[in-house]
Amino acid sequence: MQTNFEKKMFVRLHFLIFVSMNLVIDAGNTCVKLAVFEGDTLVFRQNSEVGDVAREIKEICDHYPRIKHGIIASVGNLDRKVMAVLTVFCEVHELTPMSKLPFKNSYATPQTLGVDRIALATAAFYRYPKKNVLIIDAGTCVTYDMVNDYGEYLGGAISPGLHMRYKALHDQTSKLPLLQPKEFLDYIGNSTETSIHSGVVNGICQEIDGVIDQYGSRFADLTVILTGGDALFLSKRLKNTIFADSKFLLVGLNYLLEYNKR
């Protein structure tokens, strides 16, 4: 006779066998992020070079045979063969502005709204229902996206990201060196290199804090989410209270995949 514990374990095992998993692919401007979700739980994630994506998709699907659905959101130039590889293993939804959205989209040109911003707005809509949420994605670009407490996406802003600012100073001048983000002790730079670090890092932090203040003066009880590749580096330098969440976009894509299964 089975004990209660054995019965519970059997039910749990039976559930795991038949519950499918989702494969989420976020193809950004600089790298591709891959994630596997079981329900709303993230069980695997990794970053990949564009040229390795097809091979790594196969390896992931071999390792997680319960993957039945996938979603691709690409803002870069992801090779179409990646889609072909993925369709071998699961049913695929390619996120576009024409996909079904759970929130009201009040963007004036919805057909031009980036799929990354759609995913971020979706995560905010589900994670913080009936709240005013500003999502800041600090990646190749810094994007600002606002979802109000009525579940309405209003839009936001786009500005150059951290590395883009360093590169612009180098590319658009004849003598300034190309630097990488670095800690600096004083906002008054006493050399060319420390002046660049101060100008770029201090400048982007002042921008982000200023935007948060602008939105905070207009929207009550504003929740601010900071995500993206440079979120950790920048979060320690901001004066405003934020929630840093590196997986926010991936979570939004998983919600969108579930929503578009209906």
Rank of each mutant, 00 (worst) to 15 (best):
V75D: 04
Q2E: 09
K175G: 08
T122Y: 15
Y126A: 10
G139W: 01
G189K: 03
V32D: 03
V32W: 04
A35M: 11
R12G: 08
G161E: 12
T3G: 03
S246R: 13
I60N: 01
I225E: 07
M83K: 15
A27V: 03
F5I: 12
E38N: 02
T143M: 12
A119F: 08
K182S: 05
S106L: 11
D221P: 00
N260L: 13
V142I: 08
V201T: 08
T194H: 01
G161L: 12
L23Q: 00
E59F: 13
I17V: 14
V11K: 06
T3Y: 05
A157N: 15
F233Q: 12
D149M: 06
Q2L: 03
L134V: 09
P129L: 13
V32M: 00
N105L: 07
L154R: 03
Y144A: 00
K33P: 05
N47E: 07
E56M: 02
R165A: 13
R117A: 15
L234I: 04
K7Y: 13
N190I: 03
E38I: 01
Q172F: 05
I212V: 06
L249F: 08
K33V: 01
R127L: 15
D186G: 09
L234V: 04
M83L: 15
T3L: 10
T96G: 06
C205F: 07
T30Q: 08
R45D: 10
G70D: 02
V251M: 14
N47G: 06
T140F: 06
F248E: 10
R117Q: 14
K33G: 01
L232F: 14
R117M: 15
F243V: 09
F233G: 12
F5D: 11
L250D: 09
Y153E: 03
L162D: 04
I158W: 10
N132E: 14
S159H: 03
H69M: 05
G156P: 00
R12Q: 11
Y128P: 02
N22Q: 13
